[in-house]
Design a protein around this nucleic acid. Structure first.
Lengths: 124, 124
DNA sequence: GGTGTTGATATAGTTTAGTATATCAATTGG
DNA sequence: CCAATTGATATACTAAACTATATCAACACC
């Protein structure tokens, strides 16, 4: 039987962004009425690339993800473990200030900031 | 003269982690009494690599940075812009609960969690 | 039906993260 | 003084992000 199970047993590295984050990115983009092509050109990236990131085919570099996240009006912060739950609560509250204040819902909360930033007149 | 100035004018991408973050990572590592080699072997990385990241020679992938940050008892969170200042304050307060509660100090606060995880007896 | 847009995917190429190994200056400690 | 440790750095290689281009199914909309 050759016992081929897990040939190298190495790729313990994600292989894709966590689904939560991917959805948050996608939602934030769509909420702004941007297409993958539109977002890509704003950042000087390719549609292929954005698609790969959103659909979990690749895991971007830190700088790439940071640009992505920032153009979508968020940021990437390094938070001490002890504070993570609190910060996550803050984020969820910010997203839907109506819902009950639980503690482990879906995370990342797709940024309901209600600002119609249409018009991709940016060009680079 | 050929006008060679800025051949492609392209590399608008960081080229290194923000210094704040690099220092935070380095401090967190040292606070634990770990060497670059120790940390590297815990993560299955190389000392060369860690050195490159800490000294700003390279910008890691998201997954790599996440592992790094996590083994140092922090996490990487996607935070809506509107919440960034609040979260940063929380982080600073957590780091030094004595200092005055200003709003724009040095950021990232090198995780003063006071846990002596010494013992780098890892070898490889 | 036809035209256009959107997101996914294929192929082929470039760039850079990441490996493996080794060396070296600056420490530190016996 | 010598030996060991630490962080940086050099070289050569591999893996994966990222580009450029093009195609295609699904969906709209006229």
């Amino acid at each position: 039987m050759e016992n081929d199970i897990a040939k190298h047993i190495k790729p313990l590295r994600l292989g894709a962004l966590p689904e939560d984050m991917r959805l948050a990115l996608k939602n934030a983009r769509e909420k702004r009425g941007w297409t993958q092509r539109g977002l890509a050109s704003r950042l000087g990236l390719t549609q292929t690339h954005i698609s790969g990131i959103e659909s979990g085919k690749i895991v971007p570099r830190y700088d790439t993800l940071l640009e992505l996240v920032r153009i979508l009006d968020s940021d990437l912060l390094m938070v001490p473990r002890a504070l993570v739950p609190v910060v996550q609560s803050l984020i969820r509250d910010h997203a839907r200030p109506d819902q009950g204040e639980g503690d482990d819902r879906s995370l990342y909360a797709d940024d309901t900031d209600e600002e119609s930033n249409k018009e991709p007149r940016d060009e680079v």
